[in-house]
Design a protein around this nucleic acid. Sequence first.
DNA 1: AGGGCGGTTTCCGATGAGCGGAAGGCCGTT
DNA 2: AACGGCCTTCCGCTCATCGGAAACCGCCCT
Lengths: 248, 248
Amino acid sequence: MPTPKSLLERAFSLLSVFTVDRSAVTLSELSRHSGLPLSTTHRLVASLVELRALDRAPDGRYRVGLRLLELGALSPGSLDLRDRALPFLEDLYEVTRHNVQLAVRDGTEVVYVERISARDAVNVVTRVGSRMPTHCTGVGLVLLAAAPVAVQEAVLAAPLKRFTPRTIASAPELREALARVRRDGYAISDRQIEMITYSVAAPVRGPDGDVVAAVSVVVPTGTRTDTVVPAVRTCGLAISRALGWASH
Amino acid sequence: MPTPKSLLERAFSLLSVFTVDRSAVTLSELSRHSGLPLSTTHRLVASLVELRALDRAPDGRYRVGLRLLELGALSPGSLDLRDRALPFLEDLYEVTRHNVQLAVRDGTEVVYVERISARDAVNVVTRVGSRMPTHCTGVGLVLLAAAPVAVQEAVLAAPLKRFTPRTIASAPELREALARVRRDGYAISDRQIEMITYSVAAPVRGPDGDVVAAVSVVVPTGTRTDTVVPAVRTCGLAISRALGWASH
DNA sequence: AGGGCGGTTTCCGATGAGCGGAAGGCCGTT
DNA sequence: AACGGCCTTCCGCTCATCGGAAACCGCCCT
């Protein structure tokens, strides 16, 4: 948070203090974590509460306000995409009984817009609204493979975060993986996040044929791919069709 | 939008231009609908794009950015509540095969935080993040019945919007309905929104026993209540228990 | 009781960020 | 060529914002 100057920047650096494991904070915590002077924080927070962007709990702590949930629900993918995709995601879940996810790309990252979580499934690292790098997730590889070259270069140029020994961590490896995704039409991210799971992802296309999202399912290491892959690919095609895409 | 003066107010009046059926707008539309001068709009929008609160589509139109989805996902209910409740909501869906909803109260309105939509269910008026009045929805009645008196009075004092001939539209009716909810421990909102559906709702309690949310299921008019009511109530109790509530 | 402490709220003068009218550029359409 | 949307840039005035300081409020400890 290097000295934000504009008011909006300040306001957002306040909002950025909230994370999954820090969802209710006091005023002073907000001040400390955002780096803003206390009195400034106080004033801004008051405005944000006024606008319902923040909520003040009876105990004095602040939480993210429902206004933001409302606005977030309008973000691309949360509207058309989400509604149309849901039934097909449910089908995919029905078949696989593992975590099913729908994600879109935002810059060099992926953002999950929908998730169906199996009650007793492996992994729960992702949630709606959360971000992950593109290089190490199934959805990421699918979305990156279809992204503008500039974005791909940006990812390739930056250091690739490693989660496990199997994580793609070098540019050549990543290039090869992307080529494979383009050739095959789907991606497998094998034990890149955790050693006990791999994910299979397929593209979702809009009416013009460009990739607007990716579906994936996360299954335990050892699951046979020959049943999962067709299911995911079919799901991707089905959602694409529901979005108005007609294969050439 | 009566002449917002603070910068944040202006920014939010821009964001408020976006709605479910107006999710992509041009700069001038933003200016017109928000009432802000064009050059001001231009400057603010640029900042918001910078912060990823807005996205600019290739065609020049603006959409709500994924940053807001990310932040919205941290709002109360979207975190703890949502995750813990989901499995039980799925159970309820499994049993009823109709639209299942989870909502919290925000001031005098309810906001839906989770929804499981049956593919071929009646009604799709609600969606995650959307708001409804308290007086005419099942979840609304449950939440209002448990709300501070000040909130109840505020609702009773304001005009009650009527959707159908069956909508509760007078203060005495509403008082009686709330009393019934408190007595029975659940609410039935019969044909208040559409004449072809009614909804059954039950409270969800936090560790301290206070009502933090409400579950409901929307079923077609004519469905027998004696199977639906126990299912919804049980679901509400199950989620409460999962949240740490122990019925004294 | 006293006193220290962490958090919260209020005040107010200086200042620079934000304001928005105006002018100019870039399409399509008539 | 002229018109009419829409978008972008410029720039001098001014008022909203800034933040240090000081008071305020429980709360715990001695």
